[in-house]
């Protein structure tokens, strides 16, 4: 209580950039090979997904550029009919696997990120409300969260997907599919955000800076948004990263099961589903490369999240 260390330094004002680069966070990052490698891979994959139209040698969705004769080309081997060679081979319709992977990753990442963003907004809002308001609000929100947790998230997603499919007209289904995916995965994922934010809010709302704000006459919403929210965000960041990895997998799973991204907009999961049909007829590359990409992406994002958690939470080390 009384034994608080004094940290009185001579006034020195190095630039913010210098400060940031010297911070313990960056220092720890540089010292962790796992963090550096997984960050580099994630960055590489994300950038190549974003710039897929520039990087991809072919546009797999331009029917005009497709040549059925190129179908089933093996990786790095010139095609028997056309003589064209593809790094990672082609699928049955002659689409370049490398290009479909780049475009597929785009869909996967977009769905994953959007789903996590949706889950985050929902979870943070409900968590803040539950923690700050308390009482019945809290009971209701947290009981819903409990119920939600007893269902496997993939089941929840399938349920939502099924319902959405039932209510959308056939002609819009393909367009809707992506958005339904996002909402389905997001809805199955908000609970952990809500729980963490509620826990952190319970701690923060009893701190004296919140009392000081109340005293000034600040209202509940202002205190939640301006005072508490910025202080509960670092655990959220950790969960968001790990959730992203899980959301990408969830999307792949749903697409693999045929309830996700349609073949007209294939994600990595769709590609894997298509690819597995050719595994036993010998065209292994159509399955293997998308699967490896998915694994690498999910793993590196997940490792990054794990490291973030340790780095932001020194007490756990």
């Amino acid at each position: 209580m009384v034994d608080t260390p004094l940290s009185d330094s001579a006034a020195k004002d190095p630039s913010r950039l210098r400060l940031a680069l010297q911070s313990d966070f960056i220092y720890q990052f540089k010292r962790s090979p796992v963090a550096v490698v997984s960050f580099a891979i994630t960055l590489l994959l994300v950038l190549s997904a974003i710039f897929a139209p520039l990087i991809a040698p072919y546009d797999p969705f331009d029917p005009g550029s497709l040549n059925l004769m190129n179908g089933f080309s093996a990786p790095m081997t010139p095609n028997a009919f056309t003589g064209d060679s593809f790094w990672l081979g082609t699928d049955d319709q002659g689409r370049d696997v490398f290009s479909t992977i780049l475009y597929g990753m785009r869909i996967s990442l977009f769905v994953g990120a959007a789903a996590v963003a949706f889950a985050m907004v929902l979870g943070i809002t409900l968590g803040l409300l539950a923690g700050y308001v308390g009482g019945w609000t809290e009971t209701i929100i947290m009981r819903i969260a409990d119920v939600q947790l007893t269902f496997p998230s993939i089941l929840v997603a399938m349920l939502i997907f099924g319902v959405a499919k039932g209510v959308t007209p056939v002609e819009y289904r393909d367009q809707m599919a992506i958005w339904v995916l996002i909402i389905a995965i997001g809805l199955s994922d908000w609970v952990q955000f809500a729980r963490v934010v509620r826990g952190a809010t319970l701690v923060e709302k009893n701190k004296e800076y919140v009392a000081a704000a109340k005293l000034i006459g600040r209202t509940g919403p202002a205190i939640m948004l301006r005072h508490i929210l910025p202080n509960v965000l670092s655990p959220v960041l950790v969960i968001a990263t790990i959730s992203l990895a899980l959301a990408i997998i969830a999307e792949a799973t749903l697409s693999f099961l045929g309830v996700g991204a349609p073949p007209t907009q294939p994600s990595l999961g769709t590609l894997i589903r298509i690819g597995q049909g050719f595994l036993f007829s010998g065209e292994w590359w159509i399955l293997l490369f998308p699967a490896l990409t998915l694994l690498t992406l999910a793993l590196s994002v997940n490792l990054l999240g794990d490291w973030l958690r340790d780095a932001l939470n020194p007490r756990l080390r």
């Binding site: 608080t4 701190k207 004296e208 800076y209 009392a211 000081a212 704000a213 005293l215 005072h227 910025p230 202080n231």
Partner: peptide
């Protein structure tokens, strides 16, 4: 017309402001 000063100088200032 009323203000308050608290005991814990660490908890009474919002660290993000």
């Amino acid at each position: 017309d009323i203000q308050m000063i608290f005991q814990d100088p660490f908890a009474s200032l919002n660290p993000r402001w």
